[in-house]
Design a protein around this nucleic acid. Structure first.
Lengths: 142, 142
DNA sequence: GTGATACTGAGACTCGTTCTCAACGAGCCT
DNA sequence: AGGCTCGTTGAGAACGAGTCTCAGTATCAC
């Protein structure tokens, strides 16, 4: 009873996985595409998107939506972890500090939801960006 | 950079704010646009996007990125709260259960980030979808 | 009224992503 | 070898969400 039809580990898919494993940042699909073209010139962006979707579906990668409307980012670290995202440069740092089980259970009880997972993302300034200060006032209603 | 000038509360912006206040769900910009057109026919989508961005910037609304690649959603409940998102119907329920300050401080210390906020989103099945088991309605929800 | 400027709607545009489609190729039969 | 099936590919069109541009309008201070 094959769960799905057979999948091939093609050179293109292998290259995408290699790029993701080698990345210590959290590249976007476009960045993965750029890097993969070194190892697999001629690869199409559609193939990269397909490979990334496949890696996510098979549990070999995590897809991060950093929630600021920018492109999705990918992470070869598939263990449970969260992220801190810099509001200035967009860099995402890994955070390994899970939400207490008790809190999840309490929220499930109060909301009536069956909780299957969560995404926790911190916003702020990364150490690099803290040194260069700036800010902006959105104004107020007349 | 030029100094910020005064903002006007125009009928269009008022209509957008009213729609948001009246919504008990978490409408997308497109849904807000649809509803606003009842009160303000002829309003353009660009105006709705601009008004929503302004409401978010001035603290009159919250923008939610549900992290699944779908459109951003808006919430007139501006007090600190999180969301539980149903994986089947897409509905988002409000969760009022803040992350402990100590945990935020610990993560700031470990990551080196200056944490200005966070987004916590639970995934799971809402009470309705738990009972109706085999739902596959990707469509709208009231 | 006049001038400055904030705001508007329409639509073109960008961006990230998915879809379509014809061609390719690995594996399996004869 | 030849033929077949079907997963995979690259190119580019298409899509949805959101932003930008621009000319016209509204509102304010004087």
């Amino acid at each position: 009873m094959p769960e799905r039809t057979e999948l091939r580990l093609t050179p293109q898919r292998g290259a995408v996985l290699e790029v993701l494993k080698a990345a210590d940042d959290h590249p976007t699909a476009a960045e993965v595409y750029e890097r993969v073209r070194v190892a697999a010139p001629g690869i199409g962006s559609a193939t990269v998107y397909r490979a990334l979707a496949l890696l996510v579906a098979t549990g070999h990668a995590l897809e991060l939506s950093l929630g600021d409307g920018t492109a999705a980012r990918y992470d070869a670290n598939t263990s449970r972890h969260d992220h801190a995202v810099c509001e200035r440069c967009g860099r995402a740092a890994d955070i390994d500090h899970p939400v207490p089980d008790g809190m999840v259970a309490e929220i499930a009880r109060r909301s009536g939801f069956t909780i299957t997972g969560y995404d926790l993302q911190f916003r702020g300034l990364c150490p690099d960006c803290q040194t260069t200060g700036a800010g902006q006032d959105p104004g107020r209603w007349a």
